[in-house]
Design a protein around this nucleic acid. Structure first.
Length: 498
RNA sequence: GCCCCCAUCGUCUAGAGGCCUAGGACGCCACCCUUUCAAGGUGGAGAUCAGGGGUUCGAAUCCCCUUGGGGGCACCA
């Protein structure tokens, strides 16, 4: 934070794609910094690239951030909606007149000039430089055109882009993460700030807007570090006060390259749809590149806000380790009450599941879920027809090791007959378990040997939520029917004694 | 090709000259618990702190070089 002015940070996503994990993390760091130091968090939509920007993407970004629990004090609150805050508008497409005015100011001051070079000409220069092992930069051909030359270019119909005059000097800044960074801007060359068609470019608009919105701290990804010298030079030319910069490390693919759609799942919404909890994502993202310096590792958004400090952010990039996210997600799922879990599970369950059932389901699956979306497979047996469930396993699977089909058949028959004498009111996990254990004991079977075929009959799978709780949920009628199905299966294959 | 940045277990990290024969967590292995699977408990393997030079009584921690990796070099953002 700059001690001499109020802390104002900003996130400036461009709506050219769905909310990216990296954008979410940078937003989080900005949000945490603002909350930690009682500052203001601004959201600005950088939609100057009209060809690729859409309101659908803007909506995805805004909703995704809200879902994570990240809120902003100024900016659009809903896609396409009105802005909140007194430094607006907060969409760059609505600020074009300001950029034009500032560009004109630079032109008038002789700090920028029109350049009439064509893309082909620029390309040729660049290739030439590469051949000579020189840094690629604009050669300044249009920098000192005479009035006549200028007029003749315009007469030819050439559209003039506006270039900023870069004077050779060493630029340096004290980065909150990287400390002292310096750069020789003789390597820069005069860069374009406004296209030939009059539309402004990123490096120019960020500076104009960050200054106009009185941003005190620019916190962004390390991939922007080489834009910083250009921006600093613009700040100075325009007479703006410099913000403090903080370049945070990138999130990496497993191969240590910048996280990308090709190699990783990068859209936030995809994680949400798989059933990752926002709490887990926030905790996970917070620790990718930062740690409190202690051995604590479970932090809520509020706790992160209290503890987060920019100076503790690492310099090196961090791999997005999905295994770690999975672990954290499990931790957060287990920390939920049954009612909370039921509520979150709702969207992942079929409509046939009534609220009471979902609530009773919660404790059965809580310790077994990595993602909420895993619920489907776990409890499919509850929502599928009996014959469908029976089709999931073969008769052979019903046999525990060293048990004949005939034995299993008669054991299941005993179970069936015993349980059928129970009333619906008695049909509870505890009662069922004690009956089944008694049967196993009478038969002199290991309980597990009896539970295995029973589990298969009831759930259709060898792995399931706890057997008796599952039976309680399924209900007397359907349980008995499924045991009958299993018995029938044994008989049909001829492994049952009849 | 040019510029910039980074570097502790496979991964996320603790570590800001002596507390480090490098700690925690995830993952992995074993055992315990146990009706399956999980969850939980206990223990274990796993990093000569990228390598090499310095500085220092003493370096994972400071300096230099090398190597490796990454990011950026647009009339994209």
């Amino acid at each position: 934070m700059s001690a001499d002015r109020p802390l104002r940070v900003r996130m400036a996503p461009s709506p050219t794609g769905p909310l990216h994990i990296g954008t979410a993390r940078t937003s989080l760091y900005n949000y945490l910094t603002a909350r930690h130091d009682k500052g203001t968090f601004v959201l600005r939509i950088e939609d100057t690239d009209i060809a690729r920007s859409t309101t659908e993407f803007e909506r995805d970004i805004i909703e995704g951030l809200h879902w994570l629990g990240i809120s902003w004090d100024e900016g659009p609150q809903v896609a396409g909606g009105d802005d909140i805050g007194s430094f607006g508008p907060y969409r760059q497409s609505q600020r074009l007149d300001r950029y034009a005015a500032e560009a004109q100011r630079l032109l008038n001051a002789g700090l920028a000039y029109r350049c009439y070079c064509t893309p082909e000409e620029l390309d040729a220069v660049r290739r030439e430089q590469e051949r000579n092992h020189e840094p690629p930069r604009y050669n300044g051909r249009c920098r000192n055109l005479t009035a006549e030359e200028r007029a003749s270019c315009e007469k030819e119909g050439r559209q003039g882009a506006i270039r900023f005059k870069v004077e050779p000097a060493t630029v340096r800044w004290d980065d909150a993460v990287r400390r002292d960074v310096e750069f020789d801007n003789a390597l820069l060359g005069d860069f374009v700030i406004v296209r030939g068609d009059g539309s402004p470019l990123y490096n120019f608009t960020v500076v104009v807007d960050d200054a106009a919105m009185q941003i005190s701290d620019v916190i962004r990804g390390e991939d922007h570090i080489s834009n910083t010298p250009k921006q600093i030079v613009l700040y100075e030319a325009l007479g703006y006060k410099l913000p403090r910069f903080a370049h945070i490390p990138l999130i990496l693919n497993p191969d240590r390259t910048k996280m990308s759609k090709r190699k990783s799942q990068t859209s936030m919404d995809a994680y949400r749809q798989q059933g990752y909890l926002s709490e887990a994502l926030v905790n996970f993202l917070g620790f990718l590149g930062w740690s409190p310096g202690t051995e604590e590792e479970i932090f809520s958004l509020d706790e992160l806000s209290q503890r987060f400090e920019l100076d503790k952010v690492h310099k090196g990039g961090a791999i997005f380790d999905i295994g770690r996210l999975d672990h954290l997600n499990g931790v957060y799922i287990r920390s939920l009450t049954d009612a909370q879990l039921a509520l979150r599970l709702r969207p992942f369950l079929p409509d046939a599941a009534d609220d009471a059932t979902v609530l009773r389901l919660a404790p059965l699956v809580k310790e077994r879920l990595v993602r909420l979306g895993d619920i489907g497979e776990l409890v499919a047996f509850l929502f599928q027809a009996d014959d469908a469930v029976a089709s999931w396993y073969s008769a052979e699977l019903l046999l525990p090791k060293k048990r004949e089909g005939s034995e299993v058949g008669s054991a299941l028959t005993v179970v069936r007959d015993t349980l059928s004498s129970l009333t619906d009111a008695d049909w509870s996990a505890d009662v069922l378990e004690s009956h089944c254990r008694a049967i196993a004991e009478r038969l002199e079977w290991k309980p597990g040997d009896l539970f295995k075929p029973l589990r298969l009959a009831i759930t259709g799978r060898a792995v399931s939520p706890p057997l008796f709780g599952s039976m309680e949920l399924l209900g007397r009628e359907r349980c008995l029917a499924r045991i009958d199905d299993a018995l029938g299966k044994l008989q049909r294959v001829g492994v049952a004694a009849g």
